[in-house]
């Protein structure tokens, strides 16, 4: 087979694969909708409204502006809290990786806090920070920061010694070593931390809005739930899931773009 024909065959195969992948996704989604409709439409079913009621409720809430307004408020809280988490997470992560003192003092606390449920902090936050915007920001920040710290520290530690030795042999100063060797080497880990942190920040924002001073999407969900408006409640949940999907997919896309220089 000559190279041109082989390339055409490969492109054709690649296209078929892509069609098959999307075909499977669409089919799975349709099957999921069908099962959901069947399950939710059962007369004895109350807690799970069928999509035939949820999608109109979603459309109505979007059209009235109620859901977009709530989502905008949640995303704002999430974005500000996440930015704080990124700054704190990368700085502390670097500190833990390069400082023996930080490794012995801060890292155990980070590891313990990473696995602790952050909602436990809410009663304390109520007293010291308040349950309004500042409190919510703090909760989003702590929800997202630890995964960024852990990944940043791991990435910095994984810098190949051979690269460090080469940098030193070229006479680079410490700042240049950080900038030109350690940071690019740790970047894949840092970006994974940022991606995971973005998902956790959204979860933190919605949780804070439900469990702290109720507002935005949290209020939308609480109001719908407490009045048993199940189509509206599921419409809100659907939007949260969609936002999570968009945020994670967006973060993945950015990660791939930023790391494209690493690919052969």
């Amino acid at each position: 087979m000559d190279p041109v024909t082989r390339k055409d065959t490969w492109i054709s195969q690649s296209r078929k694969n892509r069609i098959a992948k999307w075909g499977l996704r669409v089919a799975s989604f349709l099957v999921f909708l069908a099962v959901w409709q069947w399950y939710g439409a059962k007369p004895e079913m109350f807690a799970v409204a069928p999509p035939s009621q949820v999608f109109p409720a979603f459309y109505e809430a979007m059209l009235s502006g109620e859901l977009p307004k709530a989502a905008a408020g949640t995303l704002y809280t999430m974005a500000v809290g996440y930015l704080l988490a990124v700054v704190v997470g990368i700085v502390v992560g670097f500190g833990i990786a390069v400082s023996v003192w930080a490794r012995n003092t801060i890292e155990p606390i980070v590891n313990a806090a990473y696995s602790a449920p952050m909602a436990l902090l809410i009663p304390i936050l109520g007293v010291y920070i308040g349950l309004e915007f500042q409190g919510r920001l703090f909760l989003v920040m702590v929800w997202a920061v630890f995964v960024i710290i852990v990944n940043t520290a791991a990435g910095v530690r994984e810098t190949p010694p051979s690269l460090m030795e080469m940098a030193q042999s070229f006479g680079l100063n410490p700042w240049s070593i950080y900038r030109k060797v350690i940071f690019p080497s740790a970047l894949p880990y840092i970006l994974v931390g940022l991606r995971l942190g973005a998902g956790r920040a959204l979860r933190g924002a919605v949780t804070a809005e439900i469990l702290m001073s109720t507002t935005n999407l949290g209020k939308f969900l609480i109001d719908a739930g407490s009045t048993f408006n199940m189509p509206k409640l599921l419409a809100g949940i659907m939007l949260v899931i969609l936002l999570g999907l968009v945020i994670i997919q967006g973060a993945e896309y950015l990660e791939q773009r930023i790391l494209s220089w690493r690919r052969v």
């Binding site: 702290m212 001073s213 109720t214 209020k219 609480i222």
Partner: peptide, 8 residues
């Protein structure tokens, strides 16, 4: 202020 639980 909307706070769901009486403890909060």
């Amino acid at each position: 202020r909307i706070l769901e639980s009486s403890a909060l």
